[in-house]
Design a protein around this nucleic acid. Structure first.
Length: 192
DNA sequence: CCGCGGATCTTCT
DNA sequence: GAAGATCCGCGGA
């Protein structure tokens, strides 16, 4: 399968968040290649989304969200964990999709080694801070082009199984928030 | 099994 | 000065 084209990301953020389920993140590093299938995402919008870093306009950290689509937005959370997002919508319009969980499909042992865990265990990549460790993604990857290079998202057949949606994790207004998408029943989803 | 707190960067009050 | 798109280890039940 080929890398997803930039036009895939140049759309409504919520649609991209849903459509990224089942796609595969390919990570190339000197020590080996790791790949993970996306099983959980969350959409973060621009103005009007209080939970989004872009809500109050661009800052040095969030400026990537306002840039061109099809790039990685990586930031340090709680001073400890790197979180990986895919930038959406046209340049000038803020939007990003947080990758919350992946299922290893290549290099599972390498991922488990980075995590200090066991290959095959969901603990390796069942959370946004965990999967960046498993893939060795850091703020050095902020702004990286996802259509080519060492951090790429490749196309994959449509997801089999049920796609569920619900409120994002750790944000207010839970009753009206339906911006989290995940593969129902998948063992790597971060929360039930 | 569950709840609490620590680690520690960026942004805003 | 405090909270946040998190995770882990500790103590108690």
């Amino acid at each position: 399968m080929r890398a997803l084209p930039r036009s895939f990301y140049d759309r409504d953020t919520v649609e991209v968040a849903r459509d990224l389920l089942g796609k595969v993140i390919v990570r190339r590093m000197p020590e080996g290649v790791t790949e993970g299938r996306i099983v959980e995402t969350e959409a973060y919008l621009g103005t009007g989304d209080p939970a989004s870093h872009a809500h109050r306009g661009p800052t040095p950290r969030s400026s990537t969200m306002f840039g061109p689509p099809g790039r990685a937005y990586v930031y340090l959370n709680y001073g400890m964990y790197h979180l990986l997002n895919m930038v959406t919508q046209s340049e000038g319009q803020a939007g990003a999709v947080l990758i919350r969980a992946i299922e290893p499909v290549e290099g599972a042992r390498l991922m488990a080694g980075r995590r200090g865990g066991t290959a095959g265990s969901p603990e390796v990549s069942n959370g946004p801070g965990k999967l960046t460790i498993a893939l060795s993604v850091t703020t050095a990857d902020n702004g990286a082009d996802l259509t080519r290079g060492d951090l790429v998202v490749k196309d994959a057949p449509p997801v089999r199984g049920e796609v569920a949606c619900g409120p994002r994790v750790g944000v207010e207004h839970r009753s009206t928030d339906h911006l989290r998408f995940y593969m129902a029943g998948n063992a790597y989803v971060s929360r039930k």
